[in-house]
Amino acid sequence: MSTQIATSAEGASMDDDATRIARAIVRSRAIDEFLTGLGRRGLVSMVPPARGIEGHLYGALAALRPADWTFGDARMGAVALERGLPSKTWLAQILGTASAAHAGHAIPSEGTAAEVRCVSTSSLMGTHLVQAGGVAHAMAHKKTDEVVLSWFGPGAAATGDAHVAFNFAGVYQTPAIFYFCGSGDDAADRERLGGTSFADFSEGYGVDSVVVDGSDALAVRDTVAAAADKARTGGGPTLIEGRTTTDPLASLGADAAQVEAWTHGLQAELRGLTDELLAEGPPALASLFDHVFAELTPRLQEQRAQLESHRARFASGEID
């Protein structure tokens, strides 16, 4: 087991990945800004921004295949767009309108995109790391060459579930990649974690580790690619410590005019979709009871009927 410091290949030039990653980062920032605006209008709540960690997200995605699975936290919902989820499908969940795949059952930061293998996001810290190990366990048993990558931050890293996840991954040597996204405040991260490096954790678990600087998204890509190649060929899990230093966009060569053009286009698209989706209205009342179980139980049928009857009587907002 070892910890290495990774960098991108010396002299790496702007390439297709760099353009794609840059565009994804710009989209992520446009979304941060757009969601802040929706928040001011009272249309969404509780969506923390991804600002600062985009190099970790989109550098890593550049190394993954469509069949690979990802788990993220509340900041990372826009990852599904980069993996191919249509914008409208994504935004419907953010707004919780009638066509939302989850019928408005979850808050905006808890989106789901099974079609692009982004697992439904939990607001809880660290629980997803253990589940990702379970997905990896299943992949290994089925002898696929898929991997599962989970991003997490200093909060999740401090939970018991993080310990459990790393221990299980070490015991079973599953194709799991655990990607720690530093907060950008190294001193604060150290205060939460005690050690000199988060990657130091890995030694005791029997898990390889690598440290990478998230400001170099191509180095992130290369680091995740190496971890994924190892995992696909039975080499087991990797813990990546992604440090958050300078703006990852700066190293990707995108010029200011291009960034502005992308931003403008994305925001225009999102504004148009927002108007379309808001026109749908909320999900049907009865959908409140959908997806508790595969089938409605008698009790849920009864409660649904009670709610519908009650709402019908008080539809006018006045007592007859």
Binding site: T127, L129, G133, A138, A165
Partner: peptide, 20 residues
């Protein structure tokens, strides 16, 4: 499994959402 109930059930959840 290791002695961790959260690990056992978290692992089960991951396996289940994968289709097992």
């Amino acid at each position: 499994t290791p002695l961790s109930e959260a690990g056992i059930i978290g692992t089960a959840i991951g396996m289940a959402i994968y289709g097992l």
